[in-house]
Design a protein around this nucleic acid. Structure first.
Lengths: 143, 143
DNA sequence: CTTGATTTTGAAATTCAATATCAATTATAA
DNA sequence: TTATAATTGATATTGAATTTCAAAATCAAG
C-alpha cells in the first residue's frame, strides 16, 4: 500500500469519513497518472477501471485529497481546475510548455528570497505565491 | 480625448469595426474606475450611465480592448476574469490582499533576471510569466 | 442628406465546469 | 446482524462566458 493511501485512510478515519471502493480507485488512478489532470480527464480514466464511478464522486474525492494534502489544485485560467501530486512534493513553481502542455516543476531559492524581501519592504505579509512561466520547452524547441 | 480613446478609435478603424456610443461609454467607464473589475461589475457601473447597455456588449468590448492592448485580462482563479489597465502600464506582477482585495503592482528586476536565467538553464523559451503573491497588506495588518 | 451594405446591439438561449440535491446504497461500529 | 450515518451516481442547478438572431445603428458612397 502506498504512503499516500495510508495518509488517506488515516485522514478519512480522523474525519469520520468512509473508505469506499470508489475513493480507493480514484486515489490509485490519481497516483498512477503523473500528469496535471482535470476532473473530467481523471473521471474518464477511472471510469474504465470501474464504470460505476460517477463524476460527482471524482470531484468530491479530489476535494478530500486536497484537504488531506495528497493533491493540490492548479488553476491556469484555462477554465478547468487541474490537480497535481502534493505529497512528497515541496512548494514549487511551474514552467509550462504551451506547445506540448508539459509542466516543469522549479524552485529558485534566490527568487523565493527576493519575493520575501519585496513583501517585507511593503509591509505585506505573504501567505502563498504562484509563479508560472509560459513558453516553449527544450523538446518542442528542437522540432 | 484620452490617449486610450485615440488608440481605440484607430484600432476600430484598422479592423473595420464601428465606434458606437456603447463602446465609447464602456471604455470611459473602464478608464475612470481604476480597479480590477469583472465584466459584471463593469456592466453594473456602465449601466447606470446608459441603461441600454447590455452585458454581452461589455463582454465583447472588453475583448476588443484587450486586442487593442488597452486592457489586460487578470485571472486569479476565483471564477471571474478581471480586467486591468494595460496602456501606460509596463509588465508587472501582483501582491494581492486577501482581506481587502487590493492589488499592488510590483516589479523586481532581479527576480525578472533570475527567471530568465532559470529558463535559459533548462532550454526553455519564456513567452510570458505570471507571479502573484497572496497575503495581507499593510493597511489590513494594522487593524 | 439619403441610401444600403455591413456591423452592432441586447435579450434570450446555450455552453460548460462546478456544485447541490436526493433517494437508494453501502460502510462500519456496536 | 443491525442501526445509523455517510456515500453514491443520476440529475438538476448554478453562474460565468459565449452564441444566436432579429432589430437597430453606423458610415461610406452616391
Amino acid at each position: 500500500m502506498s504512503e499516500e493511501m495510508n495518509i488517506f485512510v488515516e485522514y478519512l478515519k480522523k474525519k469520520d469519513l468512509k473508505l469506499t471502493d470508489q475513493r480507493r480507485e480514484i486515489l490509485n488512478t490519481f497516483l498512477r497518472i503523473d500528469k496535471h489532470l482535470s476532473v473530467e480527464e481523471l473521471y474518464d480514466i477511472a471510469k474504465k477501471k470501474d464504470p460505476s464511478i460517477g463524476q460527482a464522486t471524482v470531484f468530491r474525492t479530489l476535494k478530500i485529497l486536497c484537504d488531506a494534502d495528497i493533491a493540490k489544485e492548479v488553476d491556469l485560467g484555462d477554465g478547468k481546475v487541474r490537480y497535481e501530486h502534493k505529497y512528497g512534493h515541496e512548494h514549487h513553481d511551474h514552467l509550462i510548455c504551451t506547445k506540448c502542455g508539459r509542466f516543469i516543476e522549479v524552485v529558485d531559492s534566490q527568487i523565493e528570497k527576493l519575493q520575501e524581501e519585496m513583501c517585507k519592504q511593503r509591509g505585506f505579509t505573504q501567505k502563498l505565491h504562484k509563479m508560472e512561466i509560459f513558453g516553449i520547452c527544450k523538446n518542442c524547441r528542437k522540432k
